[in-house]
Amino acid sequence: MPPAADNLGNDMRKIAALLTLLPLLAGCAPQGTVEITDYWVKSSEMSTQGGMTAVYGTITNTTGDDVVLIGGSTDAAGVVEVHQMSMIGGEMKMQEIDGGLVIPAGQSVTLEPGGDHLMLMMLKTDVVAGGTIEVLFDFEGAEDIILSDVVGKPAEGGDEEYHSGEMEMDN
């Protein structure tokens, strides 16, 4: 049973949470590391064999230097690329990020639907809800990270390209 709600209200608790966040992160990783948390892979009608999907999560860089996510690999897909969504000619389009995704020193970057993501294409297996796949994140400036339990989450929205026939892929 979770603890009783704080009667001071949610705003107060949010402030308290923010105040404690930085020391916690610093405390976990005194030398500085790159960590990926809250990661998942999208399970949808497109994430079947031969189709595509994307991996999301939060990458936190507590080292003193910028690191760059330049790609990845997984047994589940033939092609893995780092993509961003951006407004091009008045339309949201996704494209590969030139030179990879920079995670600045001391900062976090969140991969999320409608934003940056690790794109999996030419899927070799179905990515199903509640199932897991193993994904390697390839960094420049830091050790690669292998996540063995990236869970498939049913999700809609955010990625217009999954459902639109007019989508353009500027690889």
Partner: peptide, 22 residues
């Protein structure tokens, strides 16, 4: 139950507290 958004939550800003969620 911890007041956190679930993975893939499209509205994580609504995770405003646990409120004794069970």
């Amino acid at each position: 139950a911890s007041g956190e958004p679930i993975l893939a939550d499209p509205n994580p800003e609504l995770a405003i507290g646990a409120a004794r969620f069970s």
